[in-house]
Design a protein around this nucleic acid. Structure first.
Lengths: 103, 103
DNA sequence: GTAATATATCAATAAACATTGATACAATAG
DNA sequence: CTATTGTATCAATGTTTATTGATATATTAC
């Protein structure tokens, strides 16, 4: 049944999910981190040194990306390695297409 | 030539362009407006009545969408009709794919 | 145990942004 | 002209969010 209240066939739940995803990635530093991680798994120090970001700021943005499940953390000794969660990103990209492009 | 400073082959200019696009669409009301306009051209009063948004707030969000060139305005008497700028949206979606998914 | 390194958290500040109410502008009707 | 309707702008407010500096936690080396 069509959702007449919002005048849009997209369910509110999906719309909110997309919005939260977009809020997470609509930040220059987080976009740079995501781009950098396309090269493969990297530890926090590699990220913050390569991107010229303060350590605590990098950690903060990684937390936001982690909570959004866009990246996955893995501890190895002192280091914590981050990698992209490709499946989640693909899934949210599908949602983006559905809401923005889809009929 | 690779941009070593940001550790990412994506140029800063593209990254900023994508970020600005994402900031514009990472808002619930603007997403609803974009979804609603998928049905075709609509005037401001139709938008704000259908989406249950105050008129001035609707106008404000439309301005942001207009400045981002995601929608196009057309005056017809007292009414101003808004429609999606499909080409711009397709173009920015391509950029999204390039930055987020592309190698 | 202590020192050193890697990462995370906390508190404070500042900037960006959404929302609201009031008002202005533009077009039409009378 | 005035009144009405549709839309935009402005100023004020409150909320969210990015950033910074200081500190805490965790792991390893000694």
């Amino acid at each position: 049944m069509e959702n007449l209240q919002v005048g849009c066939k997209i369910e509110t739940k999906k719309l909110i999910e997309l919005m939260e995803y977009l809020k997470v990635i609509s930040d220059e530093n987080r976009l740079r981190i995501l781009c950098f991680l396309k090269h493969g798994e990297r530890c926090v120090c590699e990220i913050h040194e390569t991107l010229n970001l303060p350590q605590n700021l990098t950690s903060h943005h990684l937390k936001i990306l982690r909570e959004a499940e866009l990246v996955i953390a893995r501890r190895e000794g002192k280091w914590i390695h981050y990698r992209l969660n490709d499946e989640k990103i693909r899934c949210l990209t599908k949602l983006y297409k559905e809401v923005i492009l889809g009929g």
